[in-house]
Simulated scan of single mutants.
Amino acid sequence: MWPFSVFAQQRAAPVVGFLGPGLEARRHWLAAFRAGLGSQGFVDGQNVRLEYRSADGGAEGLRELAADLARREAAVIAASGPSAALAARRVTPSIPIVFLSGLDPVQIGLVSSFNRPDGNITGFYFPVDELPAKRLALLHELLPVAKRIAVLVNSAEAATAEPTVRGVLVAGQSLSLDVEVFRASTSTEIDAAFDALSRWRADALLVGSDPLFITSRAQLVALSARHAFPAIYFQRDYVEDGGLMSYGPDYADSYRQAGIYVGRILKGTKPTELPVQQSTKLELLINLKTAKALAIEVPPSLLARADEAIE
Rank of each mutant, 00 (worst) to 15 (best):
Q10L: 15
R11N: 14
A12L: 06
P21A: 10
G22N: 12
H28Y: 11
R34A: 13
R34T: 12
L37V: 13
F42M: 07
G45A: 09
L50V: 11
A55V: 12
G57V: 15
A59N: 04
A59I: 07
R63E: 14
A66Y: 10
A67I: 00
R72V: 08
A74R: 00
A75E: 05
V76N: 02
A78E: 04
G81S: 06
A84W: 04
A88C: 04
A88N: 03
V91M: 12
S101E: 07
I108A: 12
L110Y: 14
S113F: 11
F114P: 01
P117C: 12
L131F: 03
L139N: 05
L142M: 13
K147I: 07
A161P: 05
P163T: 11
T164S: 13
G167M: 10
G167E: 12
V168A: 05
V170Y: 03
S176H: 15
D178H: 08
V181S: 07
V181W: 01
F182G: 10
F182Y: 09
F182I: 06
R183L: 00
A184V: 04
S185E: 12
E189T: 04
A193V: 11
F194I: 06
S209N: 14
F213L: 06
P230A: 07
F234M: 02
D237E: 15
E240R: 15
Y247L: 03
D253M: 00
S254A: 10
Y261N: 00
Q278Y: 09
S279P: 05
T280R: 14
E297G: 07
S301C: 01
L303K: 12
D307W: 06
E308C: 00
E308K: 14
A309N: 03
I310L: 15
